[in-house]
């Protein structure tokens, strides 16, 4: 692998081609599962695992699979790994299995995975494909978890399931002596379906605004450097002429 390729793949996966905020792929689990940050981490881990495995296998078989039937082949490879993940979760993490529900088998038709198989793994060597899968997965997980934390905090006042704040004290339980709390102040809208769309829209807008600002700055810097260099050349030419 060429030097600097790792950095490029990592930057592409997490920022420049972030599957959730830049490419807007795999929107269904993003909207449906971001009500709780913990299930976002679980979904992200499952998708990352399937991405790495399918990228590796597809990259290994890239010279064997005939071009005409490549999409069905890719889908079968992906479906096998999804079945593996599903059986593993059902056996060892039943809580997460129940939370993810139908969105676990639906990883098969998640456009991120087929998109990376088609766009990267089918014409790149194994090592790079594995790294691409890893960083795309990390980009997806980070994006999902950020949205999950945002919605969970606003809608339920919790983070990864533990309370961030409590309601006002309304008295003391005479029998147990425990303090009784009133209802929490939360914005339930963000837990609803409409809140999911709004949160996603805001995250994409803010992400692309920041991204474009940084890009513009980098462009300006490069342009300034180029113009300085041109000026230096011009000065040199004038001096040489004299």
């Amino acid at each position: 692998m060429k030097k600097g390729r790792l950095k490029e793949i990592a930057l592409d996966g997490v920022i420049r081609q972030n599957p959730t905020f830049r490419l807007v792929l795999g929107t269904c689990p993003t909207l449906a599962l971001t009500t709780a940050a913990a299930s976002c981490l679980g979904m992200g881990a499952a998708v990352t695992f399937v991405l790495i495995c399918s990228n590796v296998i597809i990259s290994l078989l890239r010279n064997v699979i005939p071009d005409k039937v490549r999409i069905p082949c890719f889908i079968v490879i992906i479906a096998s790994f999804v079945t593996l993940v599903r059986m593993f979760m059902q056996a060892y993490i039943p809580d997460l299995y129940a939370t993810l529900g139908v969105f676990l088998p639906l990883i098969v038709v998640n456009c991120i995975i087929l998109g990376r198989a088609e766009g990267f793994a089918s014409h790149n060597p194994v090592g790079e494909s594995a790294l691409d899968g890893l960083f795309m997965g990390i980009g997806f997980t980070l994006a999902l978890t950020a949205m999950g934390i945002f919605r969970e905090v606003l809608a339920y006042g919790t983070i990864f399931g533990s309370d961030l704040w409590t309601g006002p004290v309304i008295g003391v339980d005479p029998q147990t002596g425990a303090t009784a709390y009133g209802p929490k102040f939360t914005i339930g809208f963000f837990g609803s379906n409409a809140g999911a769309f709004l949160t996603y829209a805001l995250f994409i807008a803010v992400f692309s605004a920041i991204y474009n600002a940084v890009e513009r700055k980098a462009h300006k810097k490069a342009a300034r450097k180029a113009s300085l260099a041109a000026a230096a050349v011009a000065v040199e030419e004038v001096q040489n002429a004299q």
Binding site: V24, S192, N193, A194, A196, F197, L198, A201, I204, A205
Partner: peptide, 12 residues
């Protein structure tokens, strides 16, 4: 995408 999602938000 963002404005489409905000529209979808009102539909939801």
């Amino acid at each position: 995408f963002p404005i489409t999602m905000i529209t979808a938000c009102f539909m939801a």
